[in-house]
Design a binder for these strands. Structure first.
Lengths: 216, 216
DNA sequence: ATGCCTTTGTGAACGCGTGCACAAAGATTG
DNA sequence: CAATCTTTGTGCACGCGTTCACAAAGGCAT
């Protein structure tokens, strides 16, 4: 039986082994003292807890470059996601296959959601259409939305929204890049990013982790 | 002179006003007691600290759906980024304009980087080509890389890499979705995501923030 | 079977970040 | 110019998460 110790795992991940053990303990997944964790069992437990063993039907709305890129993205299937439908407002797109899936018109949105029991929707439309699409998704029963459009969506309670801003990551890189260059005047620089984050977005979305460097 | 108090700002952002003031204090940007912060000055200071006032030339390598989507993305210009060049390995793409910028062949990579003083590169190639492109970018002088390819890149010290995995955000939504549904057996669920994070990626990339719920 | 060795699971201490609360500072009004 | 009022900047305390350290547990060799 192949096993791993918390020590090995921690070293590989660059974290503290005690924390890792404590985290695992919340799972209820018990390791064996003197031996370690059964790899297969551990992988299964974590996968299940994360929802990777379930099948999540997903719709993508807005089949432009980004929507097409998402439809073609290989990582989805392996993580338990299944693209149930591609939806676009352009009638000319209807029926055209993208990533092997025929695009359907926005008119079908509600019925697609209901027929497939979709609870997760991806919005890759232009900013102008995003809120409207969002409202329709929610009304049809979607309770989780991944938003790529550069708009903050408002949704009723009980609906989760995560906003992906492709430029935020670039901004974080630029921030570091700037600090590499100018070590002189940039003395009391850092903790700003936290403040900036507070200013721009109202909560939803991924927090780019810039290490909170405390200036001298 | 238009001003804001830390109290107003904090309320709008949903955070504590004291923390906000403390964060601002690290900037050295002083507010005026009894009045608040000069909005214009504050915006400028934060922008400058974040590198938004600088002009960052960026190259995008791999002009498939994703690369094209990035090239068309409006958010870049407003954040100080300028797409200096689009690069693709397919000779058939060469010269074809995407988002108004002609695609150039991979052969030109090194000279483009050098001529434009590019220090930030975006990789939107298939996984197989990513490491090779990365190596060439680094060799040509790029010191920050935004990686959309589903591979972990290895780079020498001094080079920053951020990996964007489009399915991670979906996974976080699915995680919450699962918890919404099954409140029964999912008693001692939560802190797993931290552990999972430790397992999968070795540091680089955005940490999707799932609130660390402690089980009873 | 007994003792030793390895590794888990966790109680307790430490450290850091957040939030409270107040003194200092400046603006404003009479 | 003095008194008052508002808001900043920050010392201090609290709380939470991380880390340390060790006892309990199980495997394995003799």
């Amino acid at each position: 039986m192949p096993t791993v110790s918390s020590e090995e795992l921690a070293a590989a991940a660059g974290v503290n082994s005690a924390k890792l053990r404590k985290d695992f303990s919340y799972l209820g997944s018990y390791g064996t003292r003197g031996v370690g964790y059964d790899v297969e069992y551990l992988v299964y437990q974590i996968s299940r807890e994360l929802g990777l063993t379930q099948d999540w039907p997903v719709v993508i709305v807005g089949i432009g470059n980004l929507g097409a890129a998402l439809a073609n993205y290989g990582g989805f299937a392996s993580r338990g996601f299944r693209v149930a439908a591609l939806i676009d407002a352009d009638p000319a797109m209807a029926g055209k296959p993208v990533a092997g899936i025929p695009v359907q018109h926005t008119d079908e949105l509600e019925s697609i959601i209901r027929d497939n029991g979709v609870s997760i929707g991806v919005i890759a439309t232009p900013a102008g259409a995003a809120q409207q699409v969002c409202d329709r998704l929610v009304a049809a029963g979607v309770t989780s939305i991944l938003n790529f459009a550069p708009t903050v969506l408002s949704v009723p309670d009980g609906v989760d929204v995560r906003k992906v801003d492709l430029s935020i990551e670039l901004q974080i890189l630029a921030f570091h890049e700037q600090r590499k260059a100018g070590e002189e005047a940039t003395a009391g620089a850092a903790a700003v990013q936290a403040a900036a984050r507070e200013e721009t977005s109202t909560d939803q979305g991924p927090d780019g982790d810039v290490p909170a460097v405390m200036p001298a």
